[in-house]
Design a binder for these strands. Structure first.
Lengths: 180, 180, 180, 180
DNA sequence: GATGAATGAGAATTCATTCAT
DNA sequence: TATGAATGAATTCTCATTCAT
């Protein structure tokens, strides 16, 4: 009478769809048809819709998965000896990855950012929070900045043309340092 | 034998379509159908397509018009006695207006930003350039920043959730000040 | 109380439209828009519709005009000393001209062939009839063939690919000669 | 691991669409909307486009199918004891069928005739070729005529008004016989 | 009479979603 | 479960025709 455990092949398909969708969305935007995602995943379109009942669901899942991996990176960086540079490393990473041919940012916008960031529900804010307090303790970053603000800033910078991003990131980082 | 002037009614309709499109795009994104734009303008859909032969043309026209008005504002601010605060005023204004329910930024992205900013063709870079050099002369803004970077930064900040924008703008402005 | 005579400029415009339409239709088929015909004629689209109240009317007028000129050629050939070759000359001419990049035949088909050929109303059948009886009297062409059949045959051959036409015309001419 | 066979229902629908399209095109020309074809086939318009991704594809498919059936008829006639009359039978049949209210010829013209007749790709030229050489051997048809010319002639005659066709066909056939 | 702007009914095509196999 | 065929609403764009200027 327990809930039946998902079959192994079903789980495998879910992952394949998710991975294919990420690739395709990054390369060509979230406006590619679901059919193309299915093709890239090597499954039928019915399978995509079985796992993700609407296209929005799929986009959001891709987004959450991306955030989850960011969180993992943050978790790893928390161990770092140099909390000051750890946070800059992480923020740069978010801005760069999220840029992905302009298309990631679309996904991030399409999905509901605030919901995805609800602290109680996601591990990213927690992990990034640790990075942040350590960096603040080390005097590397201003005290009046929050996790949500950091994420929003990085996503914003992600939308910028590739050639300008490094410069703009440097400017934003200057703004994030403790001010005189 | 002079080139025939456009008819008055045609000009009026062109303006109405442009205004309606701006409103609708800002309110609901550039993905609204051309039919809806026509309805909002109170003209037939054929009229929209007569003036703007593709949807992309229409989006771009709305975008250029918006830039033109920004340029006018910049021109006015150039006269200001306080060049230091003039540029912050202008940049805030761009970020706020461009925000417009997330939808402006879409338009800005859809159209080709770089092309639209080609100095020879647009007055915005020129006007903003004047604001910039004055502010730099007044020591209000760092010397190593360019017009293109400023515009890109403001459009980036425009994509941010409304409630976070003032804070993020402050941070970015701090980063734009001459650094110690 | 007499019907007002058409103004000179109106007549001139009618001719210009007709000539432009013929050119454009031959070059690109009768599916080109009326707007393009107007442009080619150097008049407004309203003028086209004033002279030819529907597109079908225009196509038919172009067709009739073409037939009229064929009739003129036939009239000229009737004077010829060699009635046997005169008819072959004329028929070849019709097949070639009507071919005009495949597009004339469209026009000929679109308009109502039978109506246009109603003997009482057109001069072509009369002129071609003269050519025919002379050629028959000279023993150059079979006696059991009619004007309508000749015209239909030539229009049919007009539809054939350019490179095949001379051969097919020769075959058809053989079939038109008095049979053993 | 064999290539998956097309589903039975898909094949059935493809056939229905093709049959409906043929009927509708013959009755009312290839300019009828795809929507009407779908209605006639009793399927949704999406189904038509799934099987034939553009309208041109559909027209061409109808055309090829028709050629295929002609080829079958030719194959059957090749068995005939009387090669002389077999070819006249076949040619008459092509001219009559292709006539179909003027509309077949449109289809034949719209699709690319030459390409469709490329010997290596179609069975019609081969089958008709057999008929031809046999008829030539029997002295029923002139030696200097080719398959391509025969096909072109029949399609040309197909465009002719129904009531004139038998007579014109007779004339053309006379031209095709060995000449004195 | 001439002009060309406005109109709106289609037309082809796409795509998220459903459902029979 | 997986598949992919079927669906049809929605979208962009065209063009014959009308009518105000």
């Amino acid at each position: 009478m327990t809930a039946r455990a998902p079959r192994a092949d079903a789980l495998r398909n879910r992952s394949r769809v998710l991975a294919a969708a990420e690739q395709v969305f990054v390369a060509r935007g979230t406006s590619v048809s679901t059919e193309e995602v299915a093709r890239a995943a090597g499954v039928g379109i019915g399978t995509v819709f079985r796992h993700f009942p609407t296209k929005a669901t799929l986009i959001e899942a891709v987004f959450r998965e991306r955030l989850r991996r960011f969180a993992e990176e943050a978790d790893r960086l928390v161990e770092s000896d140099d909390p000051g540079s750890a946070i800059w490393t992480f923020l740069s990473r978010v801005a760069e990855v999220a840029a992905g041919k302009q298309a990631w940012a679309d996904a991030f916008t399409a999905a509901d950012l605030h919901e995805a960031l609800t602290p109680a529900r996601e591990q990213l804010p927690r992990a990034l929070g640790s990075l942040l307090v350590r960096a603040q303790a080390a005097g590397a970053i201003r005290l009046d900045v929050t996790v949500a603000e950091l994420v929003a800033l990085m996503l914003a910078v992600a939308r910028v043309p590739d050639d300008l991003r490094p410069r703009l990131l440097a400017i934003v980082f200057d703004g994030l340092r403790p001010q005189p």
